[in-house]
């Protein structure tokens, strides 16, 4: 029975300790300078209204993932709600880096680099490394329905202190596989209210790709026709050439040779 998995990150509980960043690197055996997660500080206001928290920049595992739609080799695909990566298929074309509305995937060492949801761990019934490591239980992982219900309850409890607290990801792009519990409106975090695949990619997908496929088909068709015509023409020419040759031969045998030179 397929599950729809999801993460949630509670930005009220996150203490910016970076443990998720480092444990992700260790668990996925990444090089020291490659990270799937970035946790940064986030400050608002000043003086008496100054407050801060931490924000996370990482794959949102979108249901309608633009990167999956853009990927020409099938490296990126959806599995039980998660956007997974099969590195060995990657051609490093970089289309995914252009397609993602959150600018998450990078090309590192000739392959796409982004959160892989610790697929090997999940398949063994374990949560991804970030969720297991977080010391303040800010990162959760599980069935999306359960994660969403928990997140709604948390937001309700947060509203007293943070009136604009909300879940980001409930409906965007078909529903995100990472539900972020924000303490303020998405624009404060630089998150797009209505993330979409870039227009150019839509043009690419709905116009340029079909058009170029169409053109390829046309070109193939044209070449096919050319082959047919050329073969017919060649056949005609050959038939003509054979007829001419026969005629010439017939003329030669009918008349004796005018001069015969005999060389000893």
């Amino acid at each position: 029975m397929p599950t729809r998995y999801a993460f949630s990150i509670d930005l009220d509980r996150c203490i910016g300790c970076q443990a998720c960043v480092i444990s992700c690197q260790a668990g996925n055996e990444l090089k020291d300078d490659e990270t799937y997660i970035h946790v940064g500080e986030q400050i608002r206001g000043s003086g008496k209204t100054l407050w801060g928290s931490f924000d996370h920049h990482r794959c949102f595992h979108c249901a309608d993932a633009p990167c999956v739609a853009a990927c020409p080799t099938g490296t990126l695909s959806k599995w039980n709600g998660l956007t997974i990566v099969e590195k060995e298929k990657c051609s490093a074309c970089g289309y995914c880096t252009d397609a993602c509305p959150f600018k998450v995937p990078h090309i590192v060492d000739n392959h796409v680099s982004k959160c892989v949801a610790c697929l090997d761990q999940v398949k063994e019934g374990q949560a991804p490394w970030c969720a297991r490591t977080c010391p303040s239980q800010a990162i959760h992982f599980g069935e999306r329905e359960t994660i969403l219900a928990e997140a709604r309850a948390k937001v309700a409890a947060l509203k007293a202190r943070h009136p604009n607290a909300q879940i980001y990801g409930e409906t965007q792009l078909g529903g995100l596989g990472l539900l972020m519990i924000l303490l303020d409106k998405p624009e404060v975090y630089g998150l797009p209210l209505d993330p979409k695949a870039p227009e150019t990619m839509k043009v690419w997908q709905s116009v340029v790709q079909p058009a170029s496929s169409g053109l390829s088909v046309l070109a193939a068709g044209a070449m096919g026709l050319m082959f047919v015509f050329a073969r017919r023409q060649h056949g005609k020419e050959r038939a003509e050439h054979e007829r001419a040759a026969k005629q010439k031969a017939a003329l030669q045998t009918a008349q004796p040779k005018a001069t015969e030179t005999h060389h000893d």
Binding site: I15, Q18, A19, I22, A26, D32, D33
Partner: peptide
Amino acid sequence: SPVHTFGRTQNTPVLHAH
């Protein structure tokens, strides 16, 4: 910093990279 411990981890590769 949550990433470093006193004066003893600044040379640790993954923490130095961070």
